[in-house]
């Protein structure tokens, strides 16, 4: 039984939530093809994070400490991880599909002589083999991929495998290891904080759209404030809102406007005519906020909020502020 190795992601010395989802995914894998789990955490200051991960998951953690790992570069991560993983001869290496994970995972696979499948969102058996489900064609189709028989590096889409809630019987063992990997060819220069930023509709990952139900033009300020909570977001509108002159036609979504497929679409005060729905039904997650619980938009939304948006949006922004200090 070859092991399944999980690469934990740390954020300023604490575990990124996607790390626990990666563990859930690894357990699901192990149910289909049994193998012992081991977590590897890499960073400049990993001790506390490793203890926390071991306590929450019950899985043994190898903590690789490297003073050069305060800032991320793919070169350093691949070097440190490849040398630590190779001797374990794993069946799978599980990596969170984060901005870091998808950056280093393919190259890590090359170093390990492994296969690589990214953005996995479900697991099943396909003709007696493990099948990995992932989105293709902008989410319009799903692929079932059977990994090769040797080692395979997998990245797991955040949100697809919820972390386990139950506490383990006993914490996993933590081994702190000194790591001397260096990356002479790239240099991390630090981070810049997030800024409020709107992208054009086609490039936006999150679209907050206003319909006639926002009531008056002044309420667009609420829509903009909601959009500002998300990176790579944009404000859009229904035909009615553009016809009313509240938004320019370039921002119209629907049959006569743009067709969009963002990761998240929040429809505010939009009834959900077929014309509008045709332009946004391929969004990965659709949230609808509308006072009318019978509005057709709720038929295609994944989550519905039947509330007055002038009341609900400020409450939501306030709730975000408590958690994220925005």
């Amino acid at each position: 039984m070859k092991p399944i190795v999980i690469i934990a992601e740390l954020e300023s010395g604490t575990p990124h939530p996607a790390s626990f989802e990666a563990v859930s995914f690894a357990r699901a894998l192990a149910r289909l093809e049994p193998g012992p789990l081991r977590i590897i955490a890499f960073g400049a200051d990993v001790r506390n994070a490793a203890l926390e991960i071991a306590a929450k998951t019950g899985v043994d953690v190898s903590a690789l400490e490297n003073e050069h790992a305060a800032g991320y570069t793919a070169g350093l991560w691949k070097e440190a991880l490849a040398t630590s993983i190779a001797p374990l001869d794993p069946r799978f290496v599980v990596v969170p599909h984060t901005a870091r994970g998808y950056d280093f995972a393919p190259g890590l696979a090359v170093r390990l002589g492994a296969g690589c499948v990214t953005a996995v969102e479900a697991l099943q058996m396909d003709d007696g083999a493990i099948g990995l489900t992932r989105s293709a064609f902008g989410g319009k189709a799903l692929m079932h991929i059977v990994p090769p028989e040797g080692c395979t590096v997998l990245t797991v889409l955040p949100g697809a495998f919820p972390p386990e809630e139950a506490a383990p019987a006993a914490p996993g063992a933590v081994t702190i290891l000194r790591n001397n990997a260096r990356d002479a060819r790239s240099r991390a220069l630090g981070r810049t904080a997030s800024e409020v930023e709107t992208a054009s509709l086609n490039e936006a990952e999150v679209i907050v759209a206003a319909g006639r139900g926002i009531g008056k033009k002044e309420n667009l300020a609420l829509i903009r404030a909601l959009a500002a909570l998300f990176p790579r977001s944009a404000v859009a509108g229904s035909r009615a809102v553009c016809d009313a002159g509240w938004l320019e036609y370039a921002r119209q979504v629907g049959v006569t406007g743009k067709t969009v497929s963002p990761r998240l679409y929040i429809a505010c005060g939009i009834s959900g005519t077929a014309q509008h729905v045709a332009g946004m039904k391929n969004a990965q997650t659709i949230i609808a906020i509308n006072t009318d619980p019978g509005a057709p938009i709720f038929n295609i939304a994944h989550y519905g909020v039947a509330e007055d948006l002038t009341r609900f949006i400020p409450l939501f922004i306030e709730a975000c502020g408590k958690v994220y200090k925005v």
Partner: peptide, 18 residues
């Protein structure tokens, strides 16, 4: 790796009303 199947996603029926 091998692609063994490509399919269209199922439409989730009714939405989850919070």
């Amino acid at each position: 790796e091998r692609l063994v199947r490509l399919r269209l996603p199922e439409r989730s029926g009714a939405s989850e009303m919070l």
